[in-house]
Amino acid sequence: TIEDAIKKLLKLAQKGQPYTFGDFTVTSEEEAKKLAKWLKKQL
């Protein structure tokens, strides 16, 4: 689910690992949080 993807994304971001989700490449926890907010709006 999208919720699971968001959780995984935040965990990876906390470890400092870049994470690619579709067109987004997230390289920081701050970016992960922005992406998570955006994804929730898409639901």
Rank of each mutant, 00 (worst) to 15 (best):
D23F: 12
K8I: 11
A32K: 02
A32N: 03
A32Q: 02
Y19F: 15
K8T: 07
D4M: 07
L9M: 10
F24T: 01
L9F: 07
W38T: 01
K7Y: 06
G16H: 05
D23R: 02
K40N: 04
L35H: 00
E3D: 06
L43P: 02
K11P: 02
I6Y: 04
A13C: 15
V26L: 03
L35T: 01
E29W: 12
L43E: 04
E30R: 09
S28Y: 03
K8N: 08
T25L: 15
T25Y: 13
T27H: 05
I6S: 00
P18N: 06
K15Q: 09
K15D: 14
S28E: 04
D4H: 13
K15R: 09
E30H: 08
A36H: 07
L35G: 00
I2M: 07
L9V: 03
S28C: 09
K8H: 13
G22V: 14
Q42W: 11
Y19G: 10
T1D: 10
T27Y: 06
F21I: 07
D4E: 12
Q14Y: 08
T20F: 11
T20I: 07
L10V: 05
T27F: 12
L10C: 12
F21T: 03
F24R: 01
Q14H: 07
Q42L: 09
L10Y: 03
I6A: 01
A13Y: 05
L43T: 02
S28T: 12
I2A: 08
T20L: 12
K11L: 13
Y19N: 11
T20M: 08
L39Y: 02
K15N: 13
D23M: 15
K8L: 14
T27N: 07
S28V: 10
K34G: 03
Y19I: 14
A32Y: 07
A36Y: 13
D23S: 13
E30T: 12
T1I: 08
E31A: 08
E3T: 10
A36S: 05
E30W: 08
T20H: 05
K8P: 00
S28M: 06
Y19Q: 07
E30F: 12
I2K: 01
Q17A: 07
K11Q: 14
Q42K: 06
P18V: 07
D4R: 13
D23N: 10
E3S: 04
K7A: 11
L39K: 00
L9Q: 00
E31P: 01
L35W: 04
K41F: 06
K37L: 13
P18T: 05
Y19W: 12
V26A: 12
L12H: 09
K37V: 11
A5V: 15
E3V: 14
Q17M: 15
L39T: 00
E29D: 05
D4Y: 07
I2S: 01
E30Q: 07
D4S: 11
T27V: 08
K11T: 14
K11F: 13
A5M: 15
K37F: 11
P18S: 06
P18I: 11
I6C: 15
K37T: 11
G22A: 06
K11S: 13
A5F: 15
Q17H: 10
L10S: 02
K11A: 14
D23H: 08
F24A: 12
K37P: 00
D23K: 07
A13H: 03
K34M: 08
T27W: 06
T25I: 14
K37Y: 10
A13M: 08
D23V: 13
V26Q: 04
T27R: 05
I6F: 04
I2V: 09
K37Q: 10
E29T: 11
E31R: 02
G22H: 03
K33C: 11
D23E: 09
L35Y: 01
A32H: 05
G22P: 05
Q17P: 15
G16D: 06
K8E: 14
Y19P: 09
F24L: 15
A13G: 04
K8G: 05
A36V: 14
D4V: 02
G16A: 06
G22Y: 14
L39R: 00
Q42N: 04
K33N: 09
K40D: 08
Y19S: 05
K41Q: 13
T27D: 09
G22N: 11
K41S: 10
K33Q: 09
P18K: 03
L35V: 04
K15C: 15
G16N: 07
L12G: 04
I6K: 00
K33R: 12
G16P: 03
K15I: 12
G16F: 14
T1G: 04
Q14G: 11
K34W: 12
E31I: 06
L9P: 00
Q42T: 09
K37H: 11
E31H: 05
